[in-house]
Design a protein around this nucleic acid. Structure first.
Lengths: 342, 342
DNA sequence: CAATCGCTTGGTAGCGCTGTCAATATCGGT
DNA sequence: ACCGATATTGACAGCGCTACCAAGCGATTG
């Protein structure tokens, strides 16, 4: 006779069911689909559960039902402010719901992303949120066969794996350059760091806008694979000025670089925007309160995260969003740092 | 006869065991305690697992073993840069280990924290990382009875629940004020936002230092419950200057406020540090590259997260850290914004 | 040579919940 | 009053893994 591992004082679904005078399976249904119960039993199970302080065992539920209530989230960076806003949106959307989040950091590597994806899928997540549209062919193939809602976030593009929410980095960058051109700037430099796929598309947008205006000059593009920082913004601007002292504006692929560029201008006693216009990207909070205030491209990061999570939940609950691809757009925030040339 | 829910093509531990020619329980041991197997069987199970691409089912494991390999992390904010550094440290430490993270946001509410704590503990986490030393009495009582490693992070204090890693916010603030006093500043204002317990302790440190120098004046303290931001730094400094135009320095409880204060000074054409010294707190990356560079108190956030996670892991693996309370200290970074008065 | 010891290994029986279907209760329509 | 349809409820087994104990086995010992 093998031993019974007794858990004394442990409240299981069976205890709740007994107190409520129903079968365990009926009690189970109360937690997953209360509408299926008659009002009387529902109330009885509810009060029994509360009286006993019952908390479902998620491991048992996952094992029995062959699925979890975990939404996997793959993002490339935990440091970047952009992603902390997205994450906040995701967490807010899931707050109070039955779902929880499993977060993993791809560190901007699609191979790492593929590895993490396999890891996640082995545990049968309820849904998946992945960053961007550049996955390995294998990653894509895996995700296409998997039976759970998947949302690609941060950008839009053709052929979504399932759902998609973001905006066009190409259009956003082109619009930012359009603004500078409209303000009369002509020698507009480009400052880029990290150069992940979305930053590349911003560079493409810059190139398109400058070419259209017959102002494109590869000499005034400065990029690096180094992760972004405010300090780097200063360094890159210094590099650019060394190569091309005649530039009258810079487009920075993010706000950290823009802030660094602003400080570099101050160190050089270059007036912003009179001698140098600056436009950033993302519109972090500080851009509106710097001196001078800094122009930027506002992106809806919190909403992106929030909507992505909501799209997953709605799909899981059978209310699949009418539109699987959502473009949240952007807006060019025109501030002092790129005001019309005197 | 009830139906068998067959999972075709599913690789379970039993399949691995069969291919390896051992019993399932032996195969199980391979994954949890390889040393307990003879070299021959170990190799056989290993190759069988690899050949079949076996991935353990964590739900089944959790159900059978009555514990999970999840470390719960409770932090008050996802937005704050401080916590993203801590999180990065935690994730880095756990990368490659068997443990994963369950993150929850208390939104600076200890009641919310208590709720989340109960939620976590119901799922029997392997360990717990909680922020700060201010928990509800109930939270504390719960954690003291729970049988898993717990690390309190962000600050040190008396009577740890289990382990603790952080530094003294009181001492750090006092040191910052000491630096300003040493540089010859006398009317040192205080700018505080959010006013969570750790910010309160910085205020206490400020008060102690100013009182010791017989310079304490409650009129030059400006605080608000509003969450911090760069914009708010400007607003608070404006408030302070309206009340006390004669201040010659400000200590800001974080770097966002300090940056906002710097911009406000620029808007008012007040020279920093000649007319107004500024010291921040945390030493975020941009502090060293602003113009002028901004003094701050460096805190070891990444290390805090990383060590906290390592302390949990080591305890779980039976190598309990010799010292359960770790003070990571701080250092006052003296930069241009608080250089000696002319 | 028998008794003992430590190391490996295996058998058995759940862990707590839910999928599947069958059984029963309820109800409107003719 | 009868029939089929719909709403509730329950019985049973099993999801994949591991805790617990016992058994096998060679080595050691007096």
């Amino acid at each position: 006779m093998a031993p019974k591992r007794i858990m004394p004082g442990k409240i299981r679904l069976a205890e709740v069911a007994k107190l409520a005078g129903v079968s365990p399976i009926t009690a189970s249904r109360f937690f997953r689909n209360p509408e299926a119960l008659s009002a009387g039993k529902r109330a009885r199970v509810e009060s029994a559960a509360k009286e006993l302080g019952y908390v479902p065992n998620l491991a048992a539920r996952a094992l029995a039902s062959q699925r979890t209530e975990v939404i996997g989230v793959l993002i490339p960076s935990l440091t970047n402010n952009v992603f902390s806003d997205v994450l906040r949106g995701i967490y807010d959307a899931l707050d109070g719901s039955r779902y929880s989040i499993q977060l993993a950091n791809t560190r901007y590597s699609i191979l790492q992303e593929e590895r993490l994806l396999r890891l996640f899928l082995a545990q049968k997540p309820a849904g998946l949120i992945v960053t961007g549209i550049n996955q390995t062919a294998d990653s894509r193939a895996i995700m296409e066969t998997v039976d759970c809602p998947i949302v690609q976030i941060m950008e839009t593009g053709p052929s979504p794996i399932d759902m998609m929410i973001g905006f066009s980095h190409f259009d956003a960058a082109r619009a930012a350059i359009g603004h500078l051109l409209a303000q009369g700037y002509r020698r507009i430099g480009f400052l880029g760091a990290r150069m992940d796929p979305r930053v590349q598309r911003r560079l493409d947008g810059y190139r398109a806008a400058m070419s259209d205006a017959a102002l494109f000059d590869p000499q005034i593009i400065v990029t690096t694979a180094i992760p972004t920082s405010v300090t780097l913004g200063g360094t890159l601007l210094a590099d650019l000025l060394a190569k091309a002292p005649d530039i009258d504006a810079v487009f920075c692929v993010n706000d950290d670089l823009a802030l660094g560029a602003l400080f570099e201008c101050k160190r050089r006693h270059m007036a912003v925007p009179e001698q140098m216009a600056i436009v950033g990207f993302n519109d972090l909070e500080f851009m509106a309160s710097s001196e001078p205030t800094l122009s930027s491209v506002r992106t809806n990061r919190y909403e992106m995260g929030r909507n992505a999570a909501m799209m997953v939940i709605e799909t899981l609950e059978g209310r699949r969003p009418a539109e699987p691809v959502v473009d949240l757009g952007f807006s060019v925030m025109e501030r002092q740092s790129s005001a019309r040339r005197s």
